[in-house]
């Protein structure tokens, strides 16, 4: 007897491009690209649904630390972790800059000359590294017109037989309420909401380092606004109050009232 089987329906099997396929493809392509990395996996012609799958998988692989994404350019570049380009740290760049300035002391450097010391990959970290060195007191900024020149501060200190740190007074504890009162008094005097940091320091009777550190934190948190003011019109006392951050220097502070 012949089993009569019901004729099977012939179905057209559509190839579904799911997360698994995307994951396999991404990993294979990145492995092939090795240290060159890959700029993307989709083009303008790729279907929207497929783009979405790629995005999900790439985010997941990044979160799992299987894939490294370099976002220093507008278009992100993808690498397998083992082929991740060596990361440039600000500290390493700062070290390189400091060594150059230290060795050349008492020669002073402008930003252009200092930047030349760095490689193309290190250059994006220049501003951060410079600010770090100034804030730490390793470099001292001199101004000539609107230009800024830098020298090795500890070497200068040794030369002048003077301690590198200027804050000799016992730092007073910072009371935010008292500081705000001092700020308000200055605003009432000057009639401008942005006041000089150096003036605030004097009014509040605080050590410069403590005040600058606190203001920088408040600035990052968006509770005060730091602004450049006009360096060329400021006296030495005002300039001493300057806060240096990410390659910028600020003379004025405004509290959000």
């Amino acid at each position: 007897m012949i089993d009569e089987e019901k004729p099977k329906k012939r179905s057209v099997k559509t190839k579904v491009f799911g997360p698994e396929e995307a994951r396999t493809e991404v990993l294979a392509k990145l492995a092939a690209a090795r240290a060159k990395g890959k700029l993307g996996f989709t083009t303008a012609k790729t279907a929207a649904a497929k783009c979405e799958v790629y995005d999900t998988i790439l985010n997941a692989l990044e979160a799992e630390q299987v894939v490294f994404v370099d976002r220093s350019k507008v278009k992100p570049k993808y690498f397998l972790r083992e082929f991740q380009p060596p990361e440039q740290s600000s500290e390493a760049v700062a070290g390189k800059l400091l060594e150059t300035v230290r060795k050349a002391h008492p020669t002073v450097f402008g930003q252009t000359e200092l930047r030349k010391v760095l490689t193309t990959k290190e250059k994006p970290l220049f501003a951060r590294a410079l600010a770090f060195l100034i804030e730490r007191g390793d470099l001292h900024a001199l101004t000539y017109g609107k230009k800024e020149l830098y020298l090795h501060y500890p070497s200068l200190g040794e030369q002048l037989a003077k301690p590198a740190s200027c804050d000799e007074t016992e730092p007073a504890a910072l009371d935010p309420g008292a500081l705000r009162d001092a700020y308000r008094r200055l605003v009432a005097q000057t009639r401008f909401p942005a006041i000089e940091i150096a003036a605030l320091q004097r009014e509040a009777g605080l050590a410069g380092g403590i005040l600058r550190g606190w203001l920088l934190e408040e600035y990052q948190a968006g509770r005060v606004v730091l602004s450049a003011g006009d360096w060329s019109l400021s006296d030495e006392q005002t300039r001493e109050g300057a806060i240096h951050d990410r390659g910028e220097r600020f003379l004025l502070v405004r509290f959000h009232e």
């Binding site: 303008a44 976002r71 507008v74 278009k75 600035y219 990052q220 948190a221 968006g222 509770r223 606004v225 602004s227 450049a228 959000h256």
Partner: peptide, 25 residues
């Protein structure tokens, strides 16, 4: 729109503006 979206990468903006109230010129 695609290029505009890529340009305004939230991670890049977060680096420039670390908090909501943070201001720059």
């Amino acid at each position: 729109a695609g290029a505009a979206r890529r340009f305004a990468d939230p991670r890049w903006l977060a680096e420039l503006f670390p908090s909501t109230g943070f201001q720059m010129g």
